[in-house]
Computed example of a mutant assay.
Amino acid sequence: MAIRIGIMGYGNIGKGIETALADYPDMELAVVFTRRNPADVKIHTSGVPVVSAGEAEKWKDKVDVLVLAGGSATDLPEQTPAYASLFNVIDTFDTHAHISEHFAKVDEVAKNHGKTAMISVGWDPGLFSLARLFGHVILPDGKDYTFWGRGVSQGHSDAIRRVPGVKDGKQYTCPVESALEAVRNGENPVLTTRDMHTRECYVVAEKGADRGTIENTIKTMPNYFADYDTTVHFISEEELKEKHSGLAHGGFVFRSGRTGVHKEHDHVMEYRLKLDSNPEFTTHVVLAYARALYRFAKEGKKGCFTVFDVPPAYLSSLSGEELRAHLL
């Protein structure tokens, strides 16, 4: 029996989940929930109902894993704990500073209602988190560095669009090349947050909005822009669509360290992602972990989990014998 996947929200992540399901034959789309008028939401999968989010409780026995496809700024902090009382849920919460707080809330609700949850699944947090973990345990005497971009951050772009007076917007995270090369060369530089990345924002303002206020609100936004050199460009809606419609992204995780009796040998571990479509890649990661979450639920595990808690074999539809024969 296929794993029944529900999607809450039909933005970039929701659409990406629907597309990605074609690559996972052991899963099927059961329902799409939306806060919009369901009649106005057109999906690609025939025969799958689009239902008002307010009707979600009626589906609690018809969905094996609910993918929460909202934004981290305001949606997921409320939605994930709420829906963890009804479904086994998985989200892409990516506000690193608040992951522990978010985990605690979801864990409490899931345990109280006998459900299984997983948060912060994607490539960072997610795959990059695992790369950092490997770096720490393999090179204990070392330093780690994470660079993102150049690419569109969905979470940061969502945060921009929620600023009063903003009609639309995109945000690019850009690594500082000199810092990146110093790390790659094993120089072990001491870098601040501001030293490693800049942020470029392309904003379409509402007619009559105060651009100075918008720019200041963006640049001083905690957890998103306040700790970075941020540039805000005001452009037309046409220019945004023409030049900034893509969703490419990527990044690097490094761990540089020393081994030997006298720490005479230097090593650099580098993990890189180069993504043409951030949401499409992210949602493939989510579905692999949704498979693991489903297995956790079948085994009776309750509460909240992260990528650190998942045995790699649980991500694959292959048997242990097949994994050993072909991938080990």
Rank of each mutant, 00 (worst) to 15 (best):
residue 165 G to F: 06
residue 168 D to Y: 11
residue 154 Q to W: 01
residue 170 K to L: 05
residue 186 G to K: 13
residue 188 N to E: 15
residue 143 K to C: 05
residue 159 A to P: 07
residue 154 Q to R: 02
residue 173 T to G: 10
residue 171 Q to G: 13
residue 186 G to C: 07
residue 181 E to Q: 12
residue 174 C to E: 11
residue 145 Y to R: 00
residue 151 G to C: 01
residue 188 N to T: 15
residue 140 P to W: 01
residue 166 V to A: 07
residue 170 K to N: 12
residue 171 Q to A: 12
residue 153 S to G: 15
residue 162 R to L: 08
residue 170 K to Y: 10
residue 162 R to N: 01
residue 152 V to G: 00
residue 150 R to L: 02
residue 186 G to V: 06
residue 144 D to F: 00
residue 151 G to K: 04
residue 166 V to K: 07
residue 152 V to I: 00
residue 189 P to D: 04
residue 164 P to M: 12
residue 140 P to V: 00
residue 171 Q to S: 13
residue 185 N to C: 07
residue 185 N to A: 12
residue 173 T to Q: 14
residue 178 S to N: 12
residue 178 S to C: 10
residue 176 V to Q: 09
residue 158 D to Q: 05
residue 172 Y to M: 14
residue 171 Q to N: 10
residue 172 Y to W: 15
residue 152 V to F: 00
residue 172 Y to P: 03
residue 162 R to W: 00
residue 164 P to Q: 07
residue 188 N to K: 15
residue 189 P to T: 04
residue 151 G to L: 01
residue 145 Y to V: 02
residue 176 V to L: 05
residue 177 E to K: 14
residue 187 E to M: 07
residue 166 V to G: 08
residue 147 F to W: 02
residue 184 R to S: 05
residue 182 A to S: 14
residue 175 P to I: 12
residue 150 R to D: 01
residue 180 L to M: 13
residue 173 T to Y: 13
residue 155 G to Q: 09
residue 180 L to A: 12
residue 189 P to K: 01
residue 179 A to L: 13
residue 148 W to K: 05
residue 178 S to F: 13
residue 157 S to W: 03
residue 177 E to R: 13
residue 142 G to P: 01
residue 160 I to S: 09
residue 152 V to A: 00
residue 175 P to H: 14
residue 143 K to S: 02
residue 143 K to N: 04
residue 182 A to D: 12
residue 146 T to G: 04
residue 185 N to L: 08
residue 142 G to F: 03
residue 158 D to S: 05
residue 163 V to F: 12
residue 157 S to P: 02
residue 181 E to C: 08
residue 142 G to T: 01
residue 186 G to R: 14
residue 168 D to L: 10
